[in-house]
Design a binder for these strands. Sequence first.
DNA 1: CGGAGAAGTGGAAGCGCTTCCAGTTTGGTG
DNA 2: CACCAAACTGGAAGCGCTTCCACTTCTCCG
Lengths: 343, 343
Amino acid sequence: MESSPKRMPTLDEVAQRAGVSRTAASRVINNAPHVSRAKREAVERAVRELGFVPNPTAQALATRRVGAVVLAVSSDEPGLFADPFFAEVIVGVSAALEPTDLELVLLLANTPRGRDRLERLLRSRRADGVMLMALRGDDPLGRLAEQTDLPVVFGGLPLTGEPRWYVDADNRGGARLAAEHFVRTGRRRPVMITGQLDTQVSAARERGFTEGLALAGVPLLGVEAGDFTEDGGAAAMERLLAAHPAPDALFTASDAMAIGALRTLRTHGLRVPEDVAVIGFNDLASARHTAPPLTTVHQPVRSLGREMARMLVGAIEGNDPGPLILPTRLTVRESAPDLPTAD
Amino acid sequence: MESSPKRMPTLDEVAQRAGVSRTAASRVINNAPHVSRAKREAVERAVRELGFVPNPTAQALATRRVGAVVLAVSSDEPGLFADPFFAEVIVGVSAALEPTDLELVLLLANTPRGRDRLERLLRSRRADGVMLMALRGDDPLGRLAEQTDLPVVFGGLPLTGEPRWYVDADNRGGARLAAEHFVRTGRRRPVMITGQLDTQVSAARERGFTEGLALAGVPLLGVEAGDFTEDGGAAAMERLLAAHPAPDALFTASDAMAIGALRTLRTHGLRVPEDVAVIGFNDLASARHTAPPLTTVHQPVRSLGREMARMLVGAIEGNDPGPLILPTRLTVRESAPDLPTAD
DNA sequence: CGGAGAAGTGGAAGCGCTTCCAGTTTGGTG
DNA sequence: CACCAAACTGGAAGCGCTTCCACTTCTCCG
């Protein structure tokens, strides 16, 4: 048993009622030229009376424009999406799409089946364009995306290759800010927790941090890889402390890992920021509520979404907007205060 | 200038190549019966060789099934969506949709234009069903949703009327748990901060809390309305303290407001939980990191999404799944510990 | 071996809209 | 008043797929 889709009025019915050809009716609803004022009004009246709304599917078939773009989040971690990060991205994307008549379809491609769907989607013309986020290093999706002739905008760079269209936060620059902050506030024994190594984000943040330190002649005491999660951060911190008992600064590639690391530091009796200053990355809402509140590199997540969507719309319309790097900045809170604290 | 959509192979081409009728080819790709083994294989080969993928738009037009459902978030507050809450809902929805071949289109209807789109969407058969979240009390969308013949599942109850299909968390029961916890731990001077008054969620939480107290004969000292935000919570707490200087327990209709209230309590020199115990609602990620960590009513947000999607799929398939209320539970942390703290 | 029912087959008519094209009007101009 | 461009107008051919329907071909059994 099926729900019975009540038949909606069609354009033909509108045309008939208005006493014009279907062609004319079509012109009116698309407000195209070449329709006399009289007919236009007749059609408009008929539309109103019948409550006609054009069938988007039929329009799509005829125009070969679907009227939708997809935001695909490809990730192995089931939880990654739950990150408020994505909610922000979506808000940005959605805002940028608002003035257009493009629908947003969301695809969480974190299971094999999901990736499959993404693949089909890419080659089936079910959307006019695609935004792709959070690719892992070896993600075959990147290549797949290149094959399709659909415009594809990347959110964040893939590990290898530089796509034609992408927008990214200035991860490297942001990490550098963190390094500079440490140096400026007198820290000389910094360690770092990275994300998964096959991640461009992580790589860029590590690189920026290292660069920043190198510029000041401060050596990086140790690095451990986390996995962008709290627990991963806590574990990495354990390993770090085992190898380097007395760091005075910690930079993590994500706030979640910083939060985990704070936990570990506490259990080891190390005070933040007195003994070790901590800087995270992302500026999650949570970062404001940790104890102590987390100094962190802020990235304009909503803008990221907005710019991705804008870029995609541009690409769909046939322009070739170049790639875009969004600035990051340091949000200073108590975990790594501005002036050197007493040691 | 338009991006040139490279022509994909059509079913006709597949049929031709396989030397069968288009009808047969169609049967094969939908694996319908009435096709001989030989032809089936021939078609499958042709599909493979041509890299054929059926055009979903054409299928939709022919079958009158779009293959997509929409999740509409209707809200006045631009920021509301950014709440990790929705990310979780989406994860749930997405998971439930995975085994089906329904796409998820997301609609943030927080601007007039957005609502307009939602309305058009509802009456234009651009989707096979709709999930509607976070209706404000007087939201005309509810009525609109009733008018359409599309199946509509509500996430959370609208303020008035009971829709045919909805899933909601047990807000009333959860709030009652909070009341009982206060009573059990010896609190006798509770106050509450609600959300916007025209919100069903807020109403249910207030009602549950009041009931819970009433059952134990404990009077509710005062109530103030917040707006589900941190700042709103802080302000409401100020007003509360102005009227009732010495509450010993605070229940808020959301974690965000609890966080704001904690701030106000601190500036007033009140200790949590010694002077006043605090319970929030939602169990956001942030709740674990407040100082002190927040006791809060946990609701199964992901399940909520999952069940909404399931219900919608059921409805689309013509079943009539009844409404569903998901259980909530109390997550006890330090802001309102289990045993009475020394006073 | 005849006949009934199941399985296989493809032609053709849509699904609802856009748009090319050929023809008809209209409005200026000199 | 003749003449040309510009503005209308609507018939008809798609867009790519599903599905009804009228047949034809097997199978199986009595």
